[in-house]
Design a protein around this nucleic acid. Sequence first.
DNA 1: CGGTATTTTGAGTATCGTCAAGGCCAGTGG
DNA 2: CCACTGGCCTTGACGATACTCAAAATACCG
Lengths: 263, 263
Amino acid sequence: MQNARSRHDSMPPTTCDLGEVPGFRDLPGALLQELQTICRKRSYALGQTVSEMGAQSDVIGVVSDGILRMQKSLPDGRQHVVGLLVGGDIYGRVFDGGSHFSVEAASDAEVCAFDRPKFEALLLRSPELDRLLLLNMMSELDRAHDWMIILANPRIRGRLAGFLLLLCTRFLTVDHLITLAGRSIRVHIPLSRPDVAHLLGTRVESVSRALHSLADDGMIEILRPDLVDIRNIEALSEETGEPEMPDTGALARLIRHTAKRPD
Amino acid sequence: MQNARSRHDSMPPTTCDLGEVPGFRDLPGALLQELQTICRKRSYALGQTVSEMGAQSDVIGVVSDGILRMQKSLPDGRQHVVGLLVGGDIYGRVFDGGSHFSVEAASDAEVCAFDRPKFEALLLRSPELDRLLLLNMMSELDRAHDWMIILANPRIRGRLAGFLLLLCTRFLTVDHLITLAGRSIRVHIPLSRPDVAHLLGTRVESVSRALHSLADDGMIEILRPDLVDIRNIEALSEETGEPEMPDTGALARLIRHTAKRPD
DNA sequence: CGGTATTTTGAGTATCGTCAAGGCCAGTGG
DNA sequence: CCACTGGCCTTGACGATACTCAAAATACCG
């Protein structure tokens, strides 16, 4: 973690192009300009700490590329993942409210970092930015609820199925995490087994077994530990028991996409 | 559900006293006045539907008394609780963002209902109100994360312990849900067994067994199915495995409160 | 007091957690 | 270059836990 260049500057911080970031690109030009002036681009390598839980980092961040993970630090030193952040997502304790989690890079990632006081000042002056933040918060809350429903599945297989489907729907638009390979959906899992296990409330062995169990039933194919092909998304969806899928629309499109090719 | 008076008017709607509601009582007087003029008090009986998931209810609500539950409706008709709302909590799809859940009364409850367009207009003019909403959202998100951690506990006993502790810390300031009886904490569980079971990702039988298991170990005492005394909150806290408790401060105060009386 | 719904208990089975061992891969140092 | 180390993933065996099904007991309501 300290071996290469130190903490925050694997790359020299520069202004970043917010026009590229989903959500921000629709903001009025003048506001965008102003945001540009108070932001610095920062790059993080996989595993680097972006923001500590305890310390008041006084930074508001917007993910511009890659994936970050929110996690709560447990007193015993372990970390518990409570969510993932992708392009356009905002983190940081605005107005000192909530957000008592730390942030780590789940892949090589880039963020736009804002000085908190300046960001808050701008927030008070700009209804558009304020609204963006509010909506962001709301969808974050929605996603947390989706997580809860997945976690509430009594069977590991079901939880894992829900997890995979969540990755599909959430990361469909993002990056190179989801690709369509033939008539199956290729999903990259941006978490290590221990993290997945902890997130799903189980152990690594169970995750491994459940994953291979799904593979044995032909629903998925395991290409690498962190790369699986979904061959039968409908079966996977039924596996969750509760067809309460996040964003059924996107899922439906995916299904049609994969079903379009006969045989 | 339709047997008594119809949907929204068990009591004639009147203006409500926002000065009583936590969070709102600290708002500037002028703003409070303005809020008063666009709100209507509504009363709901236990089990009544406050807000449907699909329908754009065009209402922003603030809980003034009692407990509501947020829940997602599953296609198979069942409902999955994803959170509880108490005095001061805000619900409704502001700016049409997120919040795709329905709301039901978990007890007899009162809410202040705002007309959505008017509320949003006021929101744009008032930084204080906006900030209140944002902070509310953030703490809601935090709580969802707490739920996730509880749900991620591999053992039912642990999940149930976390659930009880969450009730303690969250409802400490609220209503008559938490009372101090002798040197133990009396907790009212505002959910039926099926709801608790579904929320914790298990079955009613397991909930019952886990509850009685905790009782056998002397950590709690079951007075009624929905009323338990916590006799040893520290043991209960350890039971969760992950001392990642929500709001350790309030918990600590509780512990001190119960520990103060020697025998 | 009876009827219904909810909660609890019981028995059997499936699932999952636990412990232990082995394979795979990357980084390290000889 | 290669053995070594450590982390991660997988597999196996066993015991504990939790789910399923069924029935009894309790609470709730008129």
